[in-house]
């Protein structure tokens, strides 16, 4: 296989495509749509993973002490909390600190201070992290039973729910991706079948004069690969623009923790291009095997 021969195949592939414009275009478009969905799915999975990771890292317990408790009484609660197995760190936030935080969050001009006067409705709060996230459930149960603990909050539910959603999407996505790949392969093989039919007389002449199989098949394999690759290029462009746009938006939404990551999108695009070429080669190979007795 030399370069000249490959050049000939590619030239023939472009001729095949030009000869069959409508079919080629719709094949490219279908491949593009299929791969775009695959790509969007991958972007979702990757970013959902990052998001969940960020959420779990932040998973911590907030233990609120009865508002009537003084800071000395709160200290006693802290000692008891410290004895619970699995507790890693405890950060104490006093009533005053909690109130100050709230006022700052409100922007300081909400008039909250004036309304409250000397009253402070905020409880003393302990923020607890576990030695592992798995310990949090147990800690929360034990903390609840300590005298003077008014309420225990933690974000477990959110992380769990997100993980469940992502897992469901992942399974559904894998099935959808499989089906889309099959559709793309089928379409390419149909397009190549038509090209084979259109060139049946040429193929007959090639066989009669003793052309090598690679010479007969090469242009069709190149055609299939080209269709798949062009579809992949189209989907990559759309995906890149969409991803950029989405991340610019997500970057402004602080809690999402998502930012534009070049390596991430580039590796997905490389994957799409390889998939496109592979889908094309497989599709044309199937047709060649079925319709070309060489």
């Amino acid at each position: 296989m030399n370069l000249k021969k490959i050049g000939y195949f590619i030239k023939q592939a472009f001729k095949n495509m030009a000869r069959n414009k409508v079919m080629s275009f719709s094949t490219i478009l279908t491949v593009a749509i299929s791969l775009l969905i695959v790509g969007a799915f991958l972007v979702f999975i990757v970013n959902a993973g990052i998001f969940i990771q960020a959420q779990s890292d932040k998973t911590q317990l907030s233990v609120f002490v009865d508002t009537a408790y003084t800071s000395d009484q709160a200290k006693q609660v802290e000692n008891k909390l410290n004895q619970i197995e699995g507790v890693d760190t405890i950060i104490y936030k006093s009533k005053d600190e909690a109130l100050k935080e709230i006022i700052e969050k409100q922007g300081g001009e909400s008039g909250l201070e004036a309304i409250l006067g000397d009253e402070n409705p905020m409880p003393h709060t302990f923020i607890i992290t576990g030695t592992s996230n798995l310990e949090l459930e147990g800690i929360s149960v034990e903390a609840q039973e300590i005298e003077g603990v008014y309420k225990v909050d933690y974000a477990k539910d959110l992380a769990d729910r997100l993980t469940n959603i992502v897992n469901a999407v992942r399974i559904g996505g894998i099935i959808a991706v499989g089906i889309l790949f099959l559709i793309a392969v089928f379409l390419i093989s149909t397009t190549i079948k038509l090209a084979l039919y259109a060139k049946r007389k040429e193929i007959q002449v090639m066989k009669y004069v003793g052309s090598s199989n690679s010479f007969i098949q090469g242009p069709f394999l190149a055609s299939g690969m080209l269709l798949g690759l062009l579809g992949a290029v189209l989907s990559s462009i759309i995906l890149f623009i969409g991803y950029k746009f989405l991340m610019d938006w997500a970057g402004n939404v602080a809690f999402l923790n998502l930012t534009f990551q070049a390596t991430q999108i580039v590796s997905i695009i490389v994957g799409l291009l390889i998939s496109g070429a592979l889908v094309g080669i497989i599709g044309s190979y199937l047709s060649l095997r079925k319709y070309l007795e060489v």
Binding site: E202, V205, S211, S212
Partner: peptide, 8 residues
């Protein structure tokens, strides 16, 4: 010419 072309 085709018969020669396809033989490379």
């Amino acid at each position: 010419a085709y018969a020669m072309e396809v033989l490379g």
